[in-house]
Simulated assay, not measured.
Amino acid sequence: MTADAPRTPVVAPLPREAIAAHVESVLAADLPPIVAAGHPVLRRPAQDYEGELDDGTLVRLIATMRRVMHAAPGVGLAAPQIGIPLRIAVLEDQGTADPVVAAARTRAPLPFTVLINPRYAAVEDKRDAFYEGCLSVPGYQAVVERHHRIEATYTQPDGRTVTTGFQGWPARIVQHETDHLDGMLYLDRAILRSLTANQEHHRWAQPTVDEARRGLGF
Rank of each mutant, 00 (worst) to 15 (best):
Q94N: 09
V114C: 01
H70Y: 11
A152K: 02
V68Q: 09
L53I: 00
R119I: 03
L14A: 15
I150K: 08
N117K: 02
A36V: 10
A29Y: 09
E132P: 02
L77V: 06
D125Y: 06
D55P: 04
E24K: 14
A36T: 11
I88L: 07
Q47D: 15
G76Q: 00
V23E: 01
A89R: 03
A36F: 08
D30A: 14
R119C: 04
A20W: 06
R107L: 14
M69I: 12
C134F: 01
V41M: 08
I116K: 02
A20L: 11
A71K: 13
P40A: 11
R146G: 07
E132T: 05
L14I: 11
A104N: 01
A37N: 09
A103D: 13
L58E: 03
V143D: 01
G51F: 02
L14E: 15
V23Y: 01
H147M: 12
L91M: 09
S25G: 07
V144I: 12
A89N: 01
L77S: 07
A71M: 08
L58Q: 03
T96M: 02
I88V: 13
M69C: 09
L86I: 10
A102I: 04
V114R: 00
I116R: 05
I19F: 09
I19W: 05
P73N: 07
R149Q: 10
A78D: 08
A20T: 12
D93W: 10
A20R: 15
A102D: 04
R149A: 11
P32R: 04
F130W: 08
R43Q: 12
G74S: 11
R66H: 13
D98C: 01
N117M: 04
V23C: 03
L42W: 07
F130T: 13
R107N: 13
L135N: 11
R107F: 10
Y154W: 09
G56W: 08
L86P: 03
T96R: 00
A72W: 09
G74F: 03
V100R: 14
M65L: 13
T113K: 01
I62K: 00
A129Q: 05
H39T: 06
F130N: 06
A108Y: 08
A20H: 12
A142F: 07
I82R: 00
R67G: 05
V26H: 03
D55Y: 07
P138G: 10
G83Q: 04
